[in-house]
């Protein structure tokens, strides 16, 4: 355990006077990670998303048909009359999504292995940045789902002692991912750090 030296004039733990600690001008900005994922990942995402949209479209159509035809008493008329708008609206939304999201995501998804930290950025409208030190890596998973094999990309997943510290790089070039996974596993094995 670290024992911090006593300090004078420090606030009580937890309930300290906040005026000392207001959110002042100290700011910093993360730069984007250096490397992009493979361009073929766009294909994977597009196909996957198309399949997902198609499946949901079928489900919504079924619900819409049921709403229109069954005319259950507890469903208001206004809803059952306009039910056929549901799949149309979802279809339009889905197509726009398929057209926009994969390339957008490709622009956001980035990764970098720094000196001893893996830095990733993922998402599209919601974004997440993650830092995972190499010396805390516990397992390195290199997975290729069927679609990913078709497009020759892979997903690299790095896990640490904490579930929250797991980092995933989707859509890397398969060979590159394999090299990196070997590399990281080896470095993690040699960089011993028990603090987990």
């Amino acid at each position: 355990m670290l024992n911090s030296p006593a300090h004078d004039g420090r606030p009580e733990p937890g309930e300290g006077p906040r005026e000392h600690l207001t959110e002042e001008g100290r700011t910093a900005e993360l730069r984007p990670p250096l490397r992009r994922v493979s361009g073929r990942a766009v294909g994977v995402w597009t196909v996957r998303m198309l399949l997902g949209v198609a499946l949901k479209l079928v489900l919504i159509s079924v619900v819409a048909v049921m709403l229109t035809n069954l005319s259950l008493s507890w469903i208001p008329d206004r809803l059952s009359e306009n039910a056929r708008l549901l799949p149309i609206a979802y279809g339009v939304y889905g197509l726009v999504k398929v057209a926009v999201v994969p390339s957008w995501r490709y622009r956001v998804h980035r990764w970098e292995v720094g000196e001893d930290v893996i830095y990733t950025r993922a998402g599209w409208i919601a974004r997440s940045w993650q830092l995972v030190p190499v010396n805390r890596i516990q397992t390195v998973d290199h997975t290729q789902a069927m679609l990913e094999r078709v497009f020759d990309v892979a997903t690299l997943r790095v896990q640490t002692a904490s579930f929250a510290g797991s980092s995933t790089i989707e859509g890397m070039d398969a060979d590159e991912a394999r090299v990196l996974s070997e590399e990281l596993a080896a470095r993690a094995a040699t960089l011993r750090d028990d603090a987990t």
């Binding site: 919601a126 974004r127 993650q130 995972v132 640490t160 002692a161 603090a195 987990t196």
Partner: peptide, 27 residues
């Protein structure tokens, strides 16, 4: 014991300059 960080930002958070900062701890 801090073994990583992650920042998560939804669209709405981005518009107001906020983010969820997660301190990763292996415990």
């Amino acid at each position: 014991a801090v073994i990583g960080w992650s920042w998560n930002q939804t669209l709405f958070q981005r518009r107001s300059g906020l983010a969820d900062l997660q301190v990763t701890v292996g415990a």
